[in-house]
């Protein structure tokens, strides 16, 4: 695959390197310093930074504004967009807005249901779904046209991504679903956090069999556990999360003061094992409110230094 956009992330993976992304959740306030501090922790150790879009349906500074801050810091943002809060007019408008700041990556999501957030009485939009949003960005970029058909002057140049959960039910359609996302226009995929490596390998194998890993960069998602409690919570409370018993046991069997370190060990081991897996093009490290540990994970996993591309 050769790069079609100015996206650094795309160029790195197109050159055959493993891409590395992490994420930055915007603050629940308007202080730009919070964003800058978080982003600085990631400088030099990742190729691009995802900026979440009101994740878990809790109001935060907008993803677009935060992406602009990152851009002005000389970093590469991935604009996350959920279809929960905006209709096709607002989505396309924000895509243009992002493009006007030369933001070159977008991740198309449906978003958590608002009942999980701080405004459960709100309306949800879902004018488009995540696949249709990916399709929309591709149409805007490749045809230079809005959904309505009119021409776009200076169309967006965006590397289009989507999320995939290899562990959600029903398992039998997880790969056909990936195929649909790619057909819709997704060029890279960031997966749900991987703890059940066997199941993930099975998913990748099926995707390879269908030729999907040739059409799309799959970035494996990882999240380090901070504690045994977090492992249990993820296993039992987070929908669509697959944490095998032995992983929870490994965390629980570790003395409390060593659990954070053990969580990092598991994360690094996961990356090391998946690095060798054919069809994995990179890693998406979601260190939830633990950004400062990302450089260590990247280094220990042997992913430094990050490649330079033109």
């Amino acid at each position: 695959m050769s790069a079609k956009t100015p996206s650094k992330l795309e160029k790195i993976m197109a050159a055959g390197h493993l891409g590395v992304t992490s994420e930055c959740g915007p603050p629940r306030g308007s202080d730009p310093e919070v964003i800058k501090e978080k982003a600085e922790l990631l400088r030099g150790c990742v190729d691009a930074i995802n900026v979440t879009d009101n994740q878990t349906s809790v109001v935060r500074t907008s993803s677009l504004a935060t992406c602009i801050h990152l851009k002005m810091m000389g970093m590469e943002p991935v604009l996350q967009m959920v279809t929960r809060d905006r209709n096709r007019i607002a989505l396309q408008s924000d895509i243009l807005g992002a493009a006007s700041f030369d933001i070159h990556n977008v991740l198309c999501l449906s978003g958590d249901h608002q009942s999980f957030g701080d405004h459960p009485q709100g309306q949800n939009v879902h004018d488009l779904d995540s696949m249709q949003l990916a399709w929309t960005v591709r149409k805007m970029r490749d045809e230079g046209r809005f959904l309505g058909g009119d021409e776009i002057k200076r169309p967006p140049q965006m590397f289009v991504g989507a999320a995939a959960n290899p562990f959600a039910d029903p398992f039998e359609i997880r790969v056909p679903r990936l195929a649909k996302k790619i057909e819709a226009g997704a060029e890279f995929i960031q997966t749900q956090c991987i703890y059940n490596i066997d199941k993930f390998e099975e998913w990748i194998r099926q995707a390879r069999d269908r030729g999907l890993t040739e059409k799309c960069y799959i970035m494996a998602g990882v999240t380090p556990f901070k504690s045994a409690g977090m492992a249990k919570y993820m296993k039992n409370r987070v929908p669509g999360m697959d944490v095998p018993d032995e992983v929870v046991k490994r965390m629980s069997d570790t003395p409390k003061e060593k659990q954070a370190e053990e969580g990092l060990n598991i994360c690094v081991e996961t990356i090391q094992r998946l690095k060798e897996l054919e069809g994995v093009s990179g890693f998406h490290i979601m260190a939830i409110e633990w950004e400062k540990k990302v450089p260590e994970i990247v280094e220990r996993a042997g992913l430094l230094p990050r490649p330079e591309v033109e």
Binding site: S110, H113, D129, S130, M131, Q132, N165, D169, P170, K180
Partner: peptide, 28 residues
């Protein structure tokens, strides 16, 4: 719950919707 035309979302678990364990996932 998200009126997805290309579902299910990642929150489908054991045939149930992420917003409520008693609610069937429409896409399942």
């Amino acid at each position: 719950a998200k009126r997805l035309f290309n579902g299910p979302c990642g929150g489908s678990s054991d045939g149930k919707c992420e917003i409520n364990k008693e609610l069937d996932c429409a896409w399942q």
